[in-house]
């Protein structure tokens, strides 16, 4: 088992004919993932990499290929619409990679999706990887922009707001011979789809996941909410790290959501919430894997 996606999950890429989307679509194919379709309105009928058909709409792509998930690479002004199209077509999972979507658009998308069966991951996220059993974890499901080869099939769940910190944690695990069940990047925006808590619940219910690394950063209170839930309900060891202890208040640290405003969302408050919930706090990002392994 794993969460969100399995190695045989069929998915499509919205914005496959763009440079960024095309590049990562190819890397997913190289990894052995089941990328079965591309969607670019007006370019239906083309082929991507000679093997992947391109459609004009998500609905059409789903009907023809059986895709159940999507990765969105379309530019920010059109990304909210792409998410809504994916949900309207009935995808199980929409993973929005696009960075720079206006907050107002995401407020409206989140509101529109509140009763939708579609799960949204992102935006501004690296995506999701369920490692496979092949060489360098190939044959798994890679939706997004993560480097596939750093993974290894195993039993640790990783959830993070930051891409490179996720890779850091995954690499530390893999270097120590410890594999992952699924690695989930929830993204650095202030109004995300899935939260730490949503992912934590899935890991808790996944029999294959035996330990969890949860990486957060300044801004908002999502880490605190996840920690409070974990304290009461999570049956698995969790190690965590919070980035941004040295960030000046009121400044956005790269990610649109990484900001301490009005004294809220500090690294200190989040680390305190982690400790209070029995989550092992890594003192530096170099110790994320070791902190978890010591607890297991």
């Amino acid at each position: 088992m794993s969460i969100l996606v399995k190695p045989d999950t069929k998915f499509l890429v919205q914005g496959i004919t763009g440079g960024f989307g095309g590049r990562h679509a190819q890397l997913s194919l190289d990894y052995g993932s089941q990328l079965v379709a591309g969607v670019t309105p007006g370019k239906g009928g083309q082929m991507f990499a000679d093997t992947v058909p391109v459609f004009d709409s998500v609905a059409e792509a789903m009907a023809e290929t059986g895709a159940t998930a999507s990765a969105i690479f379309v530019p920010p002004p059109f990304a909210a619409d792409a998410i809504l199209e994916g949900a309207a077509a009935g995808l199980d999972l929409v993973v929005c990679i696009t960075e720079g979507i206006p907050v107002r658009d995401m407020i409206e998308v989140k509101d529109a999706l509140k009763d939708s069966p579609t799960t949204l991951l992102g935006p501004n996220c690296p995506g999701v990887v369920t490692p496979g059993e092949g060489k360098d974890s190939s044959g798994g499901c890679r939706i997004g922009i993560s480097p596939g080869y750093i993974h290894k099939k195993g039993n640790i769940g990783v959830v993070s707001r930051s891409g490179t910190l996720t890779y850091e944690a995954v690499w530390q695990l893999t270097s120590r011979g410890v594999g992952q069940s699924t690695c989930v990047g929830i993204g650095g925006d202030p109004v995300p789809g899935m939260t730490h808590l949503d992912v934590l619940k899935l890991f808790n219910d996944d029999p294959e996941t035996t330990g969890i690394i949860m990486i957060g950063e300044i801004g908002g209170t999502a880490e605190e909410e996840a920690a409070a839930w974990a304290k009461a309900h999570c049956t698995k060891p969790i190690a965590g790290f919070i980035a941004g202890a040295t960030a000046p208040p009121g400044r956005r640290m790269g990610h649109a959501g990484a900001i301490v405003s009005g004294g809220k969302g500090t690294a200190e408050a989040k680390m305190d919430a982690f400790r209070e919930a029995g989550i092992g706090v890594a003192e530096t990002p170099s110790e994320m894997a070791d902190t978890l392994l010591k607890m297991m």
């Binding site: 930051s162 490179t164 910190l165 300044i218 980035a243 202890a245 640290m253 170099s286």
Partner: peptide
């Protein structure tokens, strides 16, 4: 000089640490 916002923050934190 770092790639990625999260890692960049974490690098600052490590220097302080």
């Amino acid at each position: 000089l770092v790639n990625g916002a999260g890692l960049a923050m974490a690098t600052m934190d490590a220097i302080k640490h």
